[in-house]
Computed example of a mutant assay.
Amino acid sequence: MVETGMETTPLTSAGHAPTPEHSAPPLPGGACDLVTVPARQGLEAVDILRRGAYEAVGPVLHDDGCDTLGFLVPPGTAAGWDVPGSTCTETDGRGLSLNPEPPVQGSDWLLPPGEVDLATDPAVLRAALGEAARLIEAADNCQ
């Protein structure tokens, strides 16, 4: 937690307070972590993030089977990631390059680099994934 005057701001899982300018982008050379979620929840989260007050979503990958989405987040996020139903993997830049070609074989960009910020703020992503899970649960319970 970071205290700013009378307010207490929760730290992101990368260890810093979220800002409207988002988290630090991945390091040069592609160092970043990757949050992977089921496609349905991920697509809802992308919609939530893009409807927000500011553009809060970085590059997003989808697998060829459209089963999962992967959000690029700042390095260090994996160390504190604890969102049920998702995983966060450290990449340390191994094999990742943020160019038009997807960095993982068998995947493609849903939101390619260059069209969005370099990384999604982990705290903002965590909130969007939670909201997406609640929306999906509510929709499934209405049937």
Rank of each mutant, 00 (worst) to 15 (best):
M1L: 13
V2E: 10
V2K: 11
T4A: 11
T8N: 13
T12G: 14
S13H: 08
G15P: 05
G15W: 07
G15Y: 07
A17I: 10
A17P: 11
T19N: 08
H22A: 12
H22K: 05
S23Y: 05
P26Q: 03
G29Y: 05
G30W: 04
A31W: 06
C32A: 15
C32I: 01
C32M: 07
D33C: 07
T36R: 13
T36W: 07
A39V: 11
A39C: 09
R40E: 03
R40Y: 01
R40N: 02
Q41F: 03
G42A: 12
E44T: 09
L49F: 07
L49Q: 03
R50F: 10
E55C: 04
E55R: 12
V57Q: 00
V60K: 02
H62Y: 11
D64W: 06
D64V: 10
T68F: 13
F71K: 00
V73M: 04
P75I: 07
P75D: 05
P75H: 10
G80C: 07
G80Y: 11
D82I: 08
D82F: 08
V83M: 14
P84K: 07
G85C: 09
S86I: 05
S86T: 13
T89Y: 00
E90R: 15
G93W: 04
N99T: 15
N99P: 08
Q105A: 14
Q105F: 03
Q105S: 10
G106K: 02
D108F: 10
L110A: 02
P113H: 01
G114M: 05
G114S: 05
V116D: 04
A119T: 08
T120H: 01
T120P: 06
D121H: 14
D121Q: 15
P122R: 03
R126Q: 11
R126M: 05
E131G: 07
A133C: 05
A133Q: 11
I136Y: 02
E137L: 05
D140W: 08
D140Q: 13
N141K: 11
C142Q: 10
Q143N: 08
